[in-house]
Nucleic acid binder design. Structure first.
Lengths: 185, 185
DNA sequence: AGGTGCATGTAACAGGTTACATGATTAA
DNA sequence: TTAATCATGTAACCTGTTACATGCACCT
C-alpha cells in the first residue's frame, strides 16, 4: 500500500531534492524551481520536467501530501512532508554510502586536448577563469541573503565560493606560467 | 556531401571527446573508453553506448576515417582524423564561448539539506572528505605517468589534485568547527 | 493595456548508463 | 585450462532539457 510502512525504497535524485526543499518552506513546484535556480543550481540543477511529475509520484507513494491553496483564482498546490516522507529524507541524509559526484567541465576537456592547438592554451585557461569569475559574482550576490538562512545552505555556499576562488587563483598562476613559457621561445 | 566543405556544424559532446582522443594515439573504441576511464573520467565520462555509435556518425560525416586492422583473428578498427576532422576539433578548441560546466554533487546536496537532520552534519562532511581522499589517491597514482604525457593532460590532472586538496582542507576545517560548536552546547 | 511574475503541466527530444551478447588473444 | 584483456556492438532503460500551452494576479 502506498504511504504505509517504512520508507524502504531508495529515493530518486529528484525525489531527494523535492523532499529536502519542503522543510525549507518551499512548497509549490514553481517555488521549488526558482529556489533551486538561485541556490543549489551550482551543484544540483532541476527542471519543471523533473519536479512536477516527481511531485505526483511522491504523493502516490505517500511521502508528501498536496493541498490546494489557490491564491485568488490562480491554482496552487502546496505540499508538505508526511511522516514517512520525513523518514525517507532523514534516511537518505543519514545513509553512509559514498555520495555521488559527477562533473562535466568543457573547459577542462579543452585544456586536456589543448595539445592539438597549443597556441590557444592560454585562451582556454582565460575562458575558464572568466566563467569562474561570473560564478563568483553570483555567489557573492546571494551570500548576504544566505547568512539569514539555515546553516547547511550557508555552508555549501561558502564552500562554493572557496572552490571558485581557488580555481581563479590557479588560472591566474597558470596564465602567468604559460605567458612566461611562450616568451622564452 | 558528407566530409566536404567546412566543419560548420557544432560537435556533440561525445564527438568532441572522440576527435580529441585520436591525436593522443587512442584510436580504437575500446582504447578510447579505457583511456577516458583512467584520465578524463573525473571531469568528463564516456560509455561504450556513446563512443561506438558516435564513431559511426563521425565517419559518415567524414570527420574521421576507420581502417580495419585486425590483431590476429580479432576484429579491430583503427580511426584517424580526416583534414576536416582536425579542422572541426581545432574550431571547437578555438571557440570562445563560455565552456559548459555541470556538476551533480550529492554530498553538497546533503549538506545543503542537513538542517533536516543536524546531528548528522558532521558525518556528511566526513563522507565528502572520504570521497575526496579516495579521488586524491587515484590522481596521485597516475601523476607520475602523466608527467611523461602531453602538457595539456598534465595541467588538468594538477588542477584536479589542487582542487581535491583544497576540498579536503575545507572539510577538515569545517569538521573542526562543527565539533567545537557541538562541544559548546 | 501590457509586462512581469506566479503557477501548473507535458510532449518531444537529447543524452547517457547498464546490461548483455559475442568472440579472439594472451598470460598464468 | 582458466582468467583477464582486447574488441565491437546494441537494446532497453533512465534521466534530464527545451519548448510550448495555459491562465490568473499584480503593478504601472
Amino acid at each position: 500500500m502506498a504511504g504505509t510502512g517504512t520508507a524502504s525504497q531508495a529515493l530518486s535524485a529528484t525525489a531527494r531534492v523535492v523532499l529536502g526543499l519542503i522543510p525549507f518552506g518551499r512548497r509549490t513546484g514553481y517555488d521549488m524551481k526558482t529556489f533551486v535556480d538561485r541556490t543549489t543550481r551550482y551543484f544540483w540543477a532541476a527542471s519543471y520536467g523533473q519536479i512536477y511529475p516527481e511531485l505526483k509520484r511522491l504523493e502516490e507513494q505517500g511521502l508528501i501530501r498536496g493541498q490546494s491553496e489557490p491564491s485568488g483564482g490562480r491554482a496552487r498546490t502546496v505540499y508538505e512532508l508526511t511522516p514517512s516522507g520525513r523518514e525517507a529524507l532523514q534516511a537518505w541524509l543519514a545513509s553512509d554510502e559514498e555520495p555521488h559526484y559527477e562533473l562535466r567541465d568543457e573547459g577542462m576537456l579543452k585544456l586536456f586536448f589543448s595539445d592539438s592547438l597549443p597556441e590557444r592554451r592560454l585562451e582556454i585557461v582565460r575562458a575558464i577563469r572568466a566563467r569562474e569569475e561570473r560564478g563568483l559574482e553570483h555567489h557573492r550576490a546571494i551570500e548576504p541573503h544566505a547568512r539569514q538562512g539555515p546553516p547547511g545552505a550557508l555552508l555549501t555556499l561558502q564552500m562554493g565560493i572557496g572552490l571558485t576562488e581557488w580555481t581563479i587563483a590557479w588560472c591566474e598562476e597558470t596564465e602567468r606560467r604559460l605567458t612566461a613559457e611562450s616568451a622564452k621561445q
